[in-house]
């Protein structure tokens, strides 16, 4: 196996980024999708909070568990976004947008 051919292949197949126009379209599409999903989910956190309150009152600690799970999911999400941004820098903005939406969701309920 020729090392030169392998080197030439790595050079020929180095990763390329999509155009900024496409990245913007993708970002817009994802943002729209996430907003729609968030607005639907906003209907049931109140029910969840009410249920959690009852359960906490019963001493089950379910509300705390639910919050912890959400925090863990968010943290995993943030780490994922950071890692993927390194491998696909042109899509970094898309990840940041999704991240900020999720942060809003957590802080805004």
């Amino acid at each position: 196996m020729s090392r030169d051919l392998e080197q030439d292949l790595r050079q020929a197949l180095r990763a390329v980024n999509p155009s900024p126009e496409f990245t913007n379209r993708l970002l817009a599409g994802i943002t729209t999708q996430r907003r729609a999903a968030t607005s639907i989910r906003r209907l049931w956190p109140r029910q969840t909070v009410a249920a959690a309150s009852v359960l906490v009152a019963l001493g089950l600690g379910w509300g705390a568990y639910h919050h912890q799970q959400r925090e863990r999911a968010l943290q995993a999400h943030v780490e994922l976004i950071k890692a993927l941004a390194i491998t696909s820098r042109s899509l970094d903005r898309a990840y940041q947008a999704v991240h900020s939406l999720d942060t809003d969701k957590v802080h805004g309920g």
């Binding site: 999509p18 993708l26 999708q33 999903a37 999400h77 890692a83 899509l91």
Partner: peptide, 29 residues
């Protein structure tokens, strides 16, 4: 390639909460 990227990322962000680690996410993509 653009159509494929759009489809994959739409699906990715629907499933993102099930992908626990960055390595898992990269592998999935």
């Amino acid at each position: 390639a653009e159509d494929l990227t759009q489809d994959v990322f739409m699906q990715f962000f629907q499933r993102i909460t099930t992908l626990d680690t960055p390595a898992h996410g990269r592998h999935w993509l």
